[in-house]
Each structure stands twice: as structure tokens, then as C-alpha cells.
């Protein structure tokens, strides 16, 4: 990563802090939004310009699709804002989980020195929390939107907490096993092996 990229990331971080700071009072709040937009644009453009980032068509298509869905989502009636926020959390969780999974497989292909214990802990936290957010937020969207196949009453069954905690324990144990005993380097195969 060049000095220019690092410098633009530094500027973007400062603008993000300012954006949150300007949200303190109504007088400066809209300036805060613009600082956030500027910071995101700077970070996206300087990442896009990195030498390792090549196939532009995919990126253009994904960003265009994001605009196509994002603009209508920002125009929902005020009564639907809670659902929109929940859906947005679901998208954010999905993005984090997918990037984490992709980084894991990429690191695995590049060799064992890539997946250090520290990186594995970070990746596992990202994937676990990301997909937990995805499914939980989708349930919230369904309930708030009163989708008919999502029951409004709370669904309970005997030993529910024990079952959930047990499942979470299994996930943590698997994560721990992946950190302690990282997988052997994979081949560059067309599908996850």
C-alpha cells in the first residue's frame, strides 16, 4: 500500500471522527453527514485505485446494484424506518461475514504464514458476529414488517436457552479448534473443499 493510500485512509478516519462529532448538535448535524460521505468516497476511491485491484466490471456492477437498492430504501415512509434499519444491519452483518470468509480462504491459499492466530481470532469474530447479525436482523425485519410467515408471538420451546447456549458453545469450540490447529494450506480449487 502506497503512502498516498495510507494518507487518504488517515484523512478518511479523521473525517469520520468529525462526522460523529458534528452530530452532537442540530446546527452542525448535516455537515456531519457530508463529512461521512466525503470520508467514504475518499476511502472507496483510494482502495479502488490500489494496484492489486483489477476487474473493474465486477466492482462497477456491485456498486451500481447497491445504488439501485439503496436509493429506494432511503425513501421508505417514516413508519417503515425501523425495518429499514434492521435490514441495513442485516446487510452490514452479511458483508462482514462474507468478507471474513473470503479472507480466510484467500489466506489459506497463500500459505500457513498468512493465517496467524491473531488473524484467525479476528476473522472468526468477524464471521461469527457477522452472520449472527444477519440472521437475527432478518428475523427482526420480518417481525417489524409483519411478514406473514414470521410469527408475531414469541416462539419458545422447552430448554430453549440451554439449546441456544449449547449451540453457541459448539460454535466457540469449533472456532477455538481452528485457532489452535489451523487448517493446512488449500489448493486454488474452484469450490471450497
Amino acid at each position: 500500500m502506497s503512502d498516498v493510500t495510507q494518507l487518504s485512509y488517515l484523512v478518511a478516519s479523521a473525517l469520520f471522527i468529525l462526522a460523529l462529532h458534528w452530530m452532537n448538535t442540530p446546527a452542525t448535524a448535516r455537515k456531519g453527514v457530508w463529512a461521512g460521505v466525503a470520508a467514504t468516497t475518499i476511502a472507496v476511491l483510494s482502495t479502488w485505485a490500489l494496484p492489486g485491484v483489477s476487474p473493474h466490471l465486477w466492482i462497477v456492477l456491485a456498486i451500481a446494484a447497491g445504488f439501485l437498492v439503496g436509493v429506494p430504501l432511503s425513501k421508505v415512509p417514516l413508519t417503515a424506518v425501523p425495518q429499514r434499519t434492521a435490514l441495513s444491519h442485516a446487510f452490514g452483518g452479511a458483508a462482514a461475514g462474507l468478507v471474513g470468509a473470503a479472507e480466510f480462504y484467500l489466506g489459506r491459499m497463500e500459505g500457513p504464514q498468512q493465517l496467524t492466530k491473531f488473524r484467525m481470532v479476528a476473522l472468526l469474530a468477524e464471521v461469527l458476529l457477522g452472520f449472527l447479525t444477519l440472521t437475527g436482523s432478518l428475523m427482526a425485519v420480518g417481525k417489524l414488517q409483519e411478514v406473514k410467515w414470521v410469527p408475531q408471538r414469541s416462539v419458545t420451546y422447552p430448554l430453549q436457552n440451554v439449546a441456544n447456549l449449547g449451540l453457541f458453545g459448539v460454535v466457540l469450540a469449533l472456532a477455538g479448534a481452528l485457532v489452535v490447529d489451523p487448517p493446512p494450506p488449500g489448493r486454488r480449487s474452484p469450490s471450497p473443499g
Binding site: G70, S88, V99
Partner: peptide, 26 residues
């Protein structure tokens, strides 16, 4: 998405890119 990984990994990236862009814009 823009890396030189296999196609299926770049698909994961593209879906994540779509989801994040949606969040940024909206």
C-alpha cells in the same frame, strides 16, 4: 472483489460490496 482470487471468492466479495454499498447509499 478486485483481487486475483478464484471466481467463487470474488463472488463473495461482490455480494458483500453490493450489501455495503446499499448501506452507504441508503
Amino acid at each position: 472483489t478486485g483481487g486475483d482470487g478464484p471466481t467463487w471468492i470474488r463472488v463473495l466479495g461482490a455480494v458483500a460490496l453490493f450489501a455495503s454499498t446499499t448501506n452507504i447509499v441508503s
